[in-house]
Design a binder for these strands. Structure first.
Lengths: 333, 333
DNA sequence: CTGTTAGCGCGTTCAG
DNA sequence: CTGAACGCGCTAACAG
């Protein structure tokens, strides 16, 4: 696509050195006399030389690319992870090559295959659910794999995230300790969102240990959103007006729940407590800061990249990195 | 990085054909007898062959990559554009190679250079501000360039977006026609956000034509956010309690303003009207839907890709595509 | 419809 | 500290 861009050869001729010397200067590799380096650099400058990565990649059978698979871009959480990935990549010369799976394992498989075609240094994926074919392709390649967000299962190489089951459990314990007893759960479609389900299970376990159960439960049959949260809480309250706390599948849903309470004139916390998950900015900027669990999305992306780049080799031992979470007391519960 | 993955040659041997035939089957190019195709495909399947894109790219001096430069991932607007880009790319076999500039032109220049090194089919950028070096690199390459979001200046090849100046102007006219006269403006740092400034200028023009001026103006010295909107409106109201409408630099800021009114007990619309820009979901899910201007972020990304892929050549004529905007009456103004 | 020939631009040897 | 030769895996251009 570039029209006779200058090549290594052109630079080498102009600088009066061999191609490999130019190559070494460009990659900062091997010993180079200062004088030669200067000469080469000025030739590069003069010609506006830009190395051809495809050629480099072919010759070295490797690349400065990092494959990144995200389930969705609609949920703010994933752009935040991407931001963390990008921040760690920025100083390294690696570029993210991204794909979006729409929570579909077959789509994921296709994307993994096209990413692998670029011989990336590593691949970052979300979650532990993959097709057998995906696993096989990954195993046959030498690329390191990080699986993000979740650490409640066995990773391929590296897992970076938090235990959603424990987060749900701790949220439950926290709310019980604050005196809440009549629990309602407001969720979204969790066939796609395995982690929301893990949190739900953790919550139920905590309730069971305290001799409690969910008194109400309402799930929206689509992705999470503020509007879904608002309407789903409305539906639940219509059926079960006596609950004293609503636990939401995440902050988006909970913020919608807050808006519902505002409209319906329900006193938040006194009459109905609200609890979310994620610790999004929007929840914390509400007139009453949302009670929630803060996950560290940015950090997850950042650490994943750092671990992946730590060694050039596929790690011999599986590694699980817990980025933790934090109960945010807030004002709504 | 792949450990002796099978190559075209391996497939060709197994299928008993020449390499080029396999290549043609893989790329769906040129006439192939059905029998041959079947044979080749089953060989590919059997070996788990994955084409090496670097080699393909080198041989054809082109790639199925599309460079995407975004100023930021923190502002929800850009992930939405990326979503549009991705949706249009999904069916084409192209992959987005992304870079984030942090609103810095020198950073942008560096990223353009590394993107160009992959010989992408096209590059998508944001806005019209680039360094001279960036412009030169782009001009020397044969890649098509789309500049998104804005159409208030002269594009390199294609511009896709809306006139922010007109949007600001129309917002002003709209509010004047609703009877508002005492205008306040709540903004964020616009050195980075040229478009927010264009909207501001449009607004001021509309006011001037009606013989009005801004009675108050408060700008937060950082990026836009809900919290910034809340606090900046608070600061403005402390100084100028008599304004009857606050125009915000965008919806994030306006939602924060709404929260401020809630806390301060200010009757929204009766005492103080609020007006945003973007038409984000969060604004529309407020107890009172936010009055704002809807921009079509998803569409901007999608159309950019479609136009870029329309022809394989650099367009001879510059093209400006207006994706328009829409005043959303809402309930806050 | 299929095959042959000849590189694409670079990095990896291995020598000096 | 520098260089020569070779090949990475694929595709363009031309045959047949």
């Amino acid at each position: 696509m570039l029209q006779d861009m200058p090549t290594l050869t052109d630079v080498a001729k102009l600088a009066g050195v061999s191609e490999i010397t130019v190559s070494r200067v460009v990659r900062n590799k091997g010993p180079i006399a200062d004088a030669t380096r200067t000469r080469v650099l000025s030739a590069i400058e003069k010609l506006g030389y830009v190395p051809n990565r495809a050629a480099g990649s072919l010759a070295s059978s490797g690349s400065q690319l990092m494959g990144v698979l995200l389930p969705s871009l609609s949920n703010i959480v994933f752009p935040e992870v991407l931001r963390g990935i990008h921040s760690a990549l920025a100083s390294t010369g690696y570029q993210p090559l991204i794909g979006v799976t729409d929570y579909d394992l077959k789509t994921e498989q296709g994307i993994v295959s096209s990413l692998l075609a670029w011989q990336p240094a590593a691949i970052i994926m979300t979650g532990f659910d993959h097709t057998d074919a995906t696993r096989r392709m990954l195993a046959n390649s030498r690329v390191r794999v990080a699986e993000l967000m979740d650490i409640d299962a066995d990773p391929i190489d590296i897992a970076v995230g938090l235990s959603h089951r424990r987060a749900g459990f701790d949220a439950g314990r926290h709310l019980i300790s604050r005196g809440y007893r009549r629990f309602g759960y407001v969720g979204h479609d969790w066939d796609a969102d395995r982690r929301a389900r893990l949190r739900y299970e953790g919550l139920c376990t905590a309730l069971a240990e305290a001799g409690l159960t969910l008194e109400a439960e309402q799930r929206f049959a689509g992705p999470s959103s503020t509007i879904a949260g608002r309407d789903t809480l409305a539906a639940m309250m219509a059926k079960n007006p006596t609950i004293d706390v609503a636990v939401f599948s995440n902050d988006d849903m909970a913020v919608g729940g807050f808006f519902y309470c505002l409209t319906a004139g329900i006193a938040v916390k006194e009459k109905l407590a609200l609890f979310g998950f994620n610790g999004l900015d929007i929840g914390q900027s509400l007139p009453m800061p949302l009670s929630t669990v803060r996950s560290n999305r940015f950090l997850i992306g950042k650490i994943a990249v750092e671990k992946l780049l730590e060694s050039g080799e596929r790690p011999t031992e599986k590694q699980i990195i817990d980025t933790g979470y934090e109960i945010v007391a807030g004002a709504t519960a």
